[in-house]
Amino acid sequence: MNADNLDTEELDIENEDEGYPLNEYQLTTTPNDFNILTIVSFIESKVFKIPSFQRHYVWDLKRASKLIESLLIGLPIPQIFLYESGRNEFLVIDGQQRLMTIYYFQKGRFPRKEKRAELREIFDEHGYIPEDIMENDDLFQKFNLKLDGIVEGRENRFNGKNYKTLEDFKTSLDLATIRNMVVKPVSGDEENGAMFEIFNRLNSGGINLGGQEIRMSLYHSEFLRALLDMNKDERWRKILGKSTPDLRLNDVEAILRVFAMASYLENYKATVNGFINNFANHAKSFNQSKIEYLRSIWKHFLDGCENLDISNFRTSSNRFSIMLFESVFYASTKNAILENKLNTRPINEDFINSLKANEKFKSHIYGKTTLKDNVIGRLTCAEEILGG
């Protein structure tokens, strides 16, 4: 076996796991019919939460108007999927566009197309749109229904109407109901794996969401925010061979993964995705001191990599090898993290080349690479070689 054939794995680790094993959980799905007034109040009070990985509002005025018309005339609309993540807390899995259309119409304001990315950031920060922002004409226009078509010589009776001018139909709209399907585990989902996979399977935003895109919302924490800054380090960008951060956050996932391997390995079970999810959830408990310490570990490790050629972490096909990188990171930082110190072990090209050529190491990077024996095998092998 040639060392040049070390790995064909790319930065995107989705091909490692078939998905989180939902068979470990028993889920329930309960229908709830909430009326429009209740839905708007739930959005404003943050009972309904729209995860930040969801795309920003994309409907035009005509499509939004048709939804409101459907509610006014009693036409059923597609159901909303929610995940009950806590007491009085529901994450929107599918239905963001419908919910935001209702919210905007009740407020009488429609977001300007060129300002929607900016509004999404505001919504993420507050959980709703503050009144002063809603009244800003640079960001919003009036939400008057735009409904085409003439029936029996008369214009659509709702065309041009807004929430305040619906007159008798205003009450009908307020009391109109939408079916909401609430999904939750029967027993406590301590690892949140079911929640992760439910989002992965049910969200219909038009693209397959990356694992880290989902984690940034489901396991939101100051540590995950800190990873975004760590991801900008020029030395890390050099190792990856990519000057700009990945829009799908695969590079951020790689950093989260190596920290999980170095400090949380005893909790590894069967899949990398499940393991990273558990660590991301665990990291919500990190205080600022812990986060700053891990920032320093990352910096010290990259200091040691500064004089290495970027080809050290690449395969013959010029692909970045996450398995090699995490093994080197583990060997260098494991003891330091265990002792809460900054005495990371120095690394050099001789060590990396020895690791690549080691038969025991190579036996753990082929086949089912996510098996616990293979994961622990390659990490401990790297630690033994670096330790002399």
Rank of each mutant, 00 (worst) to 15 (best):
Y293H: 09
I129R: 02
L227T: 14
K356C: 04
E24Q: 14
G210R: 12
E326F: 02
T38K: 14
G86Q: 14
D17H: 15
L294P: 00
L139V: 00
E10I: 07
N231Y: 08
D124C: 13
M1Y: 09
F143L: 02
S45G: 13
L37C: 12
K232Y: 01
Y57F: 11
Y57C: 02
R378Y: 06
I36P: 02
G188T: 12
H300K: 15
K356R: 11
I297R: 04
E167M: 03
L338H: 15
K62T: 15
M195L: 12
R378T: 02
F123R: 06
F81P: 05
S204I: 05
Q96C: 05
Y83E: 11
L67I: 05
W236E: 03
D124T: 15
V328S: 09
K107E: 10
G160S: 07
S311C: 07
L218G: 05
M261Q: 12
D350W: 08
E383P: 01
A382E: 09
K170A: 07
S204H: 07
E89D: 14
F199Q: 04
K284C: 11
N208A: 15
E326T: 06
I385S: 02
K107G: 11
K164A: 04
H220R: 14
N231Q: 04
L147E: 03
T171A: 15
S70T: 11
N35L: 08
C381S: 15
S217L: 05
F361R: 04
N23F: 13
N208H: 08
R120C: 07
S289G: 03
G367M: 09
F329W: 01
A176I: 00
F351W: 04
R235W: 01
M100I: 10
K269R: 07
F196K: 05
N287S: 01
Y293Q: 00
Y366L: 12
K46Q: 13
G127R: 01
Q26T: 10
D33Y: 08
K299F: 04
Y219P: 04
K62L: 12
S317H: 12
F105K: 07
R319I: 06
R314K: 13
F81G: 05
L240F: 12
E197Q: 10
N318F: 08
L227R: 05
L147C: 00
N23S: 14
L99M: 01
K269M: 06
D132P: 03
N307G: 12
R248A: 01
D138K: 15
E16W: 15
N348Y: 08
V183P: 05
G127T: 09
I255P: 03
I198C: 13
L294N: 06
I310E: 12
E125F: 11
W298N: 04
G108R: 00
G388V: 08
N156W: 01
Y366S: 14
I352Q: 06
Y264A: 02
N208M: 14
F123D: 06
D33C: 06
R120M: 10
